[in-house]
Write a protein that binds this DNA or RNA. Structure first.
Lengths: 342, 342
DNA sequence: ATGAAAGCGCTAACAA
DNA sequence: TTGTTAGCGCTTTCAT
C-alpha cells in the first residue's frame, strides 16, 4: 500500500520476461525484440515503474551526479552561473548535488570528502581554493575536478575563468583614455586568483602608460568591507580624492556607488568614475548603470561542462586551464573619452 | 593504481576483522569493542577509507538526499533561501540534489520523476505548482513533499509561506495612512498563490477602508513585464497617475522604480510611493531604499526543514500549512504618515 | 561483541 | 535475442 516502489523484478513478472529483459529495455544501447520491448513497456507503465538510479549507479559505477561546491550565493554571478550549469547538465542527463562550503579551508576538505562519498562522477568547485591534498585525492579515485571562476598554479588542475588580466588591462586603458589622473583600486579577497589577476592586469597597464596606482584598499568581496574601503579612499580632502576607482567585482561596486553617492555625496561619474567586473544583471539596472567587464557566464559554463564531461566520458582528456575574454561594457558610471570605442 | 576506492572489505582484511565489523564501526548506533574500533579506525585512516553513501542508501533505504525543485534564481530571494536551506540541511547530514524546472507544467512532472529515481528522502518544491497526480505519487511511494513559498488548496500538502494576506493588508494600511488617494497594484504571475494572497489581502484592506484599487497591471514576476506594467499605469496624464504602487515582489519593484525615475522622470517617493514584497538584500541598498514586507527567509527555511525532517524521520507526522508573518520594513521609497509606527 | 550470510535493485558478462 | 548468474558495497539479521 504505502512505500511501494516497483522493482524491475515485479515488472518482469507482470510482463512474463526475465528481470534482465526489463533492464535491457530501460538501457539505451541494449538489444531487445520489439515484442519484448512492448510487453515490458506496457507492464512498466501500468505499474508505474522507473529504474532506481542509485542501484544503477552502484553497479555501473556512474551516478550521473556532479558535485558542486559553492561558497556563497550573495553575488548574483553565482546563482546565475549555477542556473545555467544545472540546466546544461540536466540536458546531458546529469544532476547537481550541491554543497555549500564555508570559506574556511578545513570546511572545504570536509565538504569535498562528503561529496566523494556520494560517488559523484565529477566535481565543479566554484570560487573555492582546493588543497593539493584534495585534488590529489580526486585524481587518485578518478573523479574529474574543474575549478570554476578560480584558477590555481597546479597545471594538473582544470579550470575555467574569464581572462582576468586582460579584463583588468581593459579597465586601465579605458580609465586612462578618459583622462583620469588619480586612479584607485578596491581589491577583492586577496586569496582569490581572480582578484590577483584583475589587479595585476590593471596595474601593469597603468604602469605601461607611465602612471601608477594612486590608492588601494581591500574590500574582500564583502559589502561591509567594500564600504569601509570606500570611506578609506574617499573620505579625505577633495584635492586628495581619487577621480576613478576600479572595483574588483560588481557586487562590491554597487556598495561603493551607494557610499560614494549617498554617504559621501559625490557624483558618479562627474566626480568619480566607477568600474566593476562581472556584468551581473544588476549592473544594467539604471539606478547603477555600471560600466563593467563582462564575464561571459554562458561560455564559461559551457566550457566547464564540456571539459568535465570530456574527462568523465572521454578516455584520457588532459586537464586544461581555459580563459575566456569578455568585453568592457560601457555604461554611465564612468566618464567616457571622446572617440573611445573598442 | 587509479580508480582505487577502498571498500569496507579491504579495511576488514587490513584490520583483521570481518567486513561487518567495519560497517558497525562506521554506523553511529552500533556495538563494537574499543579494541575493534581502534583497529578498524586505524586501518581505515591508513587506507583512506570512507563508506560509500550510495551503497548505504541502497540497503538502508535512506539516501540522505533531498530533492530541490526550483524555477529560477534571478530573484535574489531564492538563492538566499537556497543557501540557508543547504546549510541547515547539511548540518543534519542531508544534501540537496538540485533540479531546475522550466515553468511549463509538463517539465515539472518530468523533473520530479527524475528526482524520485534518485531515491531522495524528501522533496522541497520552491515556487512551483504541483499537479495532484504528482503529489499523489510522492505520497504513494512515501516521499514527503514540502512546498516552499507557495501553497495549494490541497490540505494533504505541506507548505511554508509568509503570511501573504497579512502582508498585503499591512501595505494597504500603510499607504492609506500615508494619505495616498490613487493606489495601484502591479501583480506577479497570476498562477502563484503568493501573488493571489498578497493581492487579496491588499485589496480587502483597501476596501475595508472604503477605498478601492485605482489601477492594476500584471508584471508576472518578470522584469520586462513589470516595466511594461509600469508604463501602462504611469505613462498617462499627470492627473490620472497613481500616487502609490504596491508591487508584488521586490525583484519587480526595482525595475518599476527604474522606469519611474529614469524613463518617466517621476520622483520616488515625492510623486509616487513604491512598496515591494520580500525584503531581499538589494531592497536595503541605498539606490533603491525600498519599503517592503519582509519574508523571514530564515524562519521559513527552518520551518521547511523541520517539517520535512519530521515527516522523514518521525512516525506519522501530519502535513501542515505554515504561514509566517513578517514586518513591513519602512525605508525611503514610500511617503510615511506622521506618527506611523506599528 | 563478532562473523557468516542474505540481500537492496540493478547491470553486465556469459550461455543458450 | 534471451535467461541465468554473479556481483556493485554496504547494512542487518542470525548464530555463535
Amino acid at each position: 500500500m504505502s512505500n511501494s516502489r516497483i522493482t524491475a523484478q515485479q515488472v518482469a513478472a507482470a510482463a512474463g520476461v526475465s528481470q534482465s529483459a526489463v533492464s535491457r529495455v530501460f538501457t539505451p544501447g541494449a538489444s531487445a525484440s520489439p515484442r519484448t520491448v512492448a510487453k515490458v513497456q506496457q507492464a512498466a507503465r501500468e505499474l508505474g515503474y522507473r529504474p532506481n538510479s542509485l542501484a544503477r549507479a552502484m553497479v555501473s559505477g556512474k551516478s550521473r551526479m556532479i558535485g558542486l561546491v559553492v561558497a556563497y550565493l550573495q553575488n548574483q554571478f553565482y546563482p546565475d552561473a549555477m542556473e545555467k550549469l544545472s540546466s546544461q547538465l540536466q540536458e546531458k542527463g546529469y544532476h547537481l548535488l550541491v554543497f555549500l562550503a564555508a570559506q574556511t579551508d578545513g570546511d572545504i576538505d570536509r565538504v569535498v570528502s562528503e561529496i566523494l562519498d556520494y560517488q559523484v562522477d565529477g566535481i565543479i568547485a566554484a570560487s573555492v581554493a582546493m588543497s593539493s591534498d584534495l585534488s590529489e585525492r580526486c585524481r587518485q579515485i578518478g573523479v574529474p575536478l574543474v575549478l570554476f571562476n578560480r584558477s590555481q598554479d597546479d597545471p594538473s588542475l582544470s579550470s575555467v575563468t574569464s581572462d582576468n588580466r586582460a579584463g583588468g588591462r581593459q579597465v586601465a586603458e579605458f580609465l586612462l583614455a578618459g583622462g583620469h589622473q588619480r586612479i584607485a583600486y578596491i581589491a577583492g579577497w586577496e586569496g582569490a586568483s581572480t582578484q590577483r589577476d584583475r589587479e595585476a592586469g590593471f596595474v601593469a597597464a597603468l604602469q605601461a602608460a607611465g602612471q601608477s596606482l594612486y590608492a588601494r584598499a581591500v574590500g574582500n568581496f564583502k559589502l561591509e568591507d567594500a564600504a569601509a574601503a570606500t570611506r578609506q579612499l574617499f573620505d579625505v580632502p577633495a584635492g586628495e580624492r581619487p577621480d576613478a576607482v576600479f572595483v574588483a567585482n560588481d557586487h562590491m561596486a554597487f556598495k561603493v556607488m551607494d557610499v560614494l553617492r549617498f554617504e559621501l555625496g559625490l557624483a558618479v561619474p562627474e566626480e568619480v568614475s566607477v568600474v566593476g567586473y562581472d556584468d551581473v544583471q544588476a549592473a544594467g539596472w539604471q539606478a547603477y548603470d555600471l560600466t563593467t567587464v563582462r564575464q561571459p557566464a554562458n561560455q564559461m559554463v559551457s566550457e566547464t561542462v564540456r571539459l568535465l564531461l570530456a574527462q568523465i566520458e572521454g578516455e584520457n582528456t588532459p586537464p586544461s586551464q581555459i580563459e575566456i575574454g569578455g568585453p568592457l561594457v560601457l555604461r554611465g558610471s564612468a566618464r567616457i573619452a571622446k572617440g573611445w570605442k573598442r
